[in-house]
């Protein structure tokens, strides 16, 4: 019996951008959402539509936690709760930890979840191999993935902001990775840009074996890369995602532009995806000969 396929073989199978039915540049048609949005307000808008239409009864989002910019996963069942979670936090929010509770004490039959590519992988693994997720697999009704080069621990973000950018965490208005820089915007209007090479040491180690940049396994995935400021690139991937997206478009939730007509467009997305996957593929290979005749684990080859 063959073992699992080698991961670069897999990459060739799916392509860097994964399978998708549709790719556009889009932004929410709702000014209130755009005002608080990281980019085009795609996640908030799509969940809002799904909630209002009864496609989902609640969504697992990353809301404000105990400390400034520390996210806490929670289940939003109202538009107000959804809005409170908008914006990217750039550190870990264990979204999947709520996926079963949503079906238990929250009593949800139709769940939305937003997360990074690895979290989308966790969700799909959980649907096909629900080891400890009884009665969860058929209740995931909308999984939105966000593009992700890597994630950070809270302490990492704190050091980037407080040491490198010389700003207090609670004084930060927005953080962003784009145009090859880590941007920190202060409440008082100051803007600090850090070169990405500064951020590298702070990256979460587990991200270095990740072979997915654009959340290939989401129903709909989105991120700023590829689209102009204030817009987001959107991949509609699954039949289910396509269904919801079309309804949202028909309802006038989004303004869209063909991805071919925007700058920098898919070329940049492909470039970054290729860079990430190539680099991390190399890491996976290096791990195989990390010690002296000793390997580090490769999850893509099995659980041993």
């Amino acid at each position: 019996m063959p073992l699992m396929r080698h991961s670069n073989e897999v990459r060739e199978m799916a392509g860097e951008l994964g399978k998708y039915k549709l790719c556009v540049s889009a932004r929410s048609a709702d000014k209130a959402i755009l005002k608080r949005a990281q980019d085009g307000g795609i996640v908030t808008q799509l969940f809002k539509f799904a909630l209002e239409e009864g496609i989902i009864e609640g969504a697992i989002v990353a809301g404000p936690g105990d400390e400034p910019w520390r996210p806490r996963p929670f289940i939003a069942t109202t538009v107000e709760e959804l809005m409170s979670a908008s914006g990217t936090k750039y550190n870990i929010s264990p979204q999947v930890s709520w996926i079963k509770e949503a079906t238990r004490s929250y009593g949800l039959d139709k769940i939305g979840i937003v997360g990074t590519p690895c979290q989308m992988q966790a969700v799909r693994k959980g649907q096909l191999y629900p080891v400890g997720l009884r009665d969860v697999p058929d209740k995931i009704k909308l999984a939105i993935g966000i593009f992700c080069m890597e994630n950070f621990s809270y302490q990492s973000v704190k050091q980037l902001v407080e040491d490198h950018a010389a700003m207090k965490m609670e004084a930060v208005k927005k953080m962003e990775i784009g145009k090859g820089k880590f941007w920190v915007y202060g409440q008082r209007g100051q803007v600090v840009q850090l070169p990405l090479k500064v951020t590298h040491k702070y990256e979460q180690p587990g991200c270095h074996v990740c072979l997915d940049y654009v959340a290939n396994l989401a129903d709909v995935s989105t991120g700023s890369v590829g689209s102009p400021d204030g817009w987001s690139t959107v991949f509609v991937r699954t039949r289910n995602g396509d269904d919801i997206w079309s309804k949202a478009i028909a309802a006038g939730c989004f303004e869209t532009k063909p991805i071919e007509q925007v700058k920098p467009g898919l070329e940049l997305v492909t470039k970054l995806a290729t860079e990430k996957i190539t680099k991390n593929q190399k890491t996976v290979e290096e791990r195989a000969k990390f010690g002296v005749n000793k390997s580090l684990r490769n999850p893509y080859l099995g659980p041993k």
Partner: peptide, 25 residues
Amino acid sequence: QGLCMGCGSCAAACPVRAITHEYGK
């Protein structure tokens, strides 16, 4: 093994609520 990325699957799967996440781990 340097593989955790803090998704939270383990906590969801635990049948006795023995797993929490502290700063994502």
